[in-house]
Design a protein around this nucleic acid. Structure first.
Lengths: 223, 223
DNA sequence: ACGCCAGTCAACACCATGTCGAGTGGAATC
DNA sequence: GATTCCACTCGACATGGTGTTGACTGGCGT
């Protein structure tokens, strides 16, 4: 049903149809409007007309820049996940130096990134249920992190710092899932939630005990 | 904006306006239709007209029985959470007998209940983003379980089976959150997920290590 | 001086939700 | 056995959001 997007050979920019030109600022105006409105009310309560008017254009013109409301959110999400990936950096490759500190750094950086864009993250969590595209992108992103953590766990087991146990992938999925849900509750503030001040340490504790069976994993090889 | 519901003093039955009579079967027909359709397509793709026609009534008549589409789902959710609470039973009070077995029983029972109604659970997860009522009910239910787990953890610490550590409530929140998200992924099958066959044992492992620092907690008091 | 095309929008078609008001039929009451 | 009442029903309408169409504009290259 959806017409084939990105007709010419440009990268899938998600937003605007290919060949750019003057109206570049309109596109950023829409994105900025979306971020601003998301700070005020939930995504579902924002209409395309709101976004268009906020960017100083009419509703039909909006469709010139984005194929749908969800596409705007998707673009926003892209930015956030990219920022998160950058923030995470190569922390996991230097795990052996000081496992506890490194894991904490990883979790804290994600926390900072998501916390800094909580409105976007929350909105994505909300539409994930209804939008297959968001679901797909998020799944991709998660998969990447799961793989990184899986590899790190296997590394720690190989150097004798962590005991064998669950398949590393399953453990990585469970821990990443926990973080996602706990952050969601903390940022959204609905239902039982960990206080924002404590959330990093709470998550860290569960990660360490699940991976190492202790909250003070060994720094140097021990096996 | 929403008019005060349940005008006369009946319990908040969520569905039908008070004073029941013949049309009782229509109400169950709507609920049955909802469950049937949820097995075929996502909640968002089911219109009120679909529910009405499925139950053999017209759309306006639907509103005689339920104030909205979401209210139908809410009724379905009520049933499931009630079933889950029953299934959980008093497992946690007999923890000391055999902690590992009891915790596993708890997780396995929830798994069975949710798995048996995965369509309803999935639908709820999807509308939680957009419907405050569902969010509230789910928060309530979660809070109840969090409290139960929190108390159990404190009990295990008191009898010397579990070491001190994170505030019991924070730990309970994190673990319950993890379960919710992991089950969601497993049942929905989107994104990285633990195989359904393994999910109970994976979750159990993280619970035990987080609570006891070991997967084989002591049966009798040890302190 | 002209054609092209990125950019723009009024007007329209569509669909789902929710409401209103006019029914209808069976049980209780007179 | 007529009458009233009310649970229950639905046709028709109002509303509000989405997505599309087709015509228009203005700058830029030829």
């Amino acid at each position: 049903m959806t017409p084939a997007r990105t007709p010419t050979g440009t990268a899938p920019t998600r937003g605007r149809r290919p060949g750019r030109s003057t109206g570049d600022d309109r596109e950023v105006a829409i994105l900025a409007t979306a971020e601003r409105l998301l700070r005020q009310r939930p995504f579902g309560d924002i209409s395309i007309d709101d976004l268009a008017r906020g960017a100083g254009i009419s509703r039909p013109t909006f469709y010139f820049y984005f194929p749908s409301k969800d596409a705007v959110l998707l673009t926003l999400l892209d930015r956030v996940t990219e920022e998160a990936n950058t923030a995470a950096g190569d922390v996991l490759v230097r795990l052996a130096e000081d496992p506890r500190a490194r894991w904490r750094e990883l979790i804290a950086r994600f926390h900072a990134t998501f916390g800094g864009h909580r409105d976007v993250v929350l909105a994505c969590a909300q539409v994930r249920g209804t939008n297959a595209e968001v679901r797909r992108l998020w799944a991709e992103v998660l998969e990447r992190w799961v793989r990184a953590v899986e590899a790190a766990i296997e590394g720690e087991r190989a150097r004798g710092a962590a005991p064998d146990g669950l398949p590393a992938r399953d453990l990585a999925i469970a821990l990443n899932s926990m973080n996602e849900r706990v952050w969601y509750a903390t940022f959204a503030g609905d239902g039982p939630a960990v206080a924002e001040r404590d959330v990093v340490d709470v998550l860290l504790d569960v990660w360490l005990t699940a991976i190492y069976r202790t909250t003070t994993p060994p720094v140097s090889p021990s096996a």
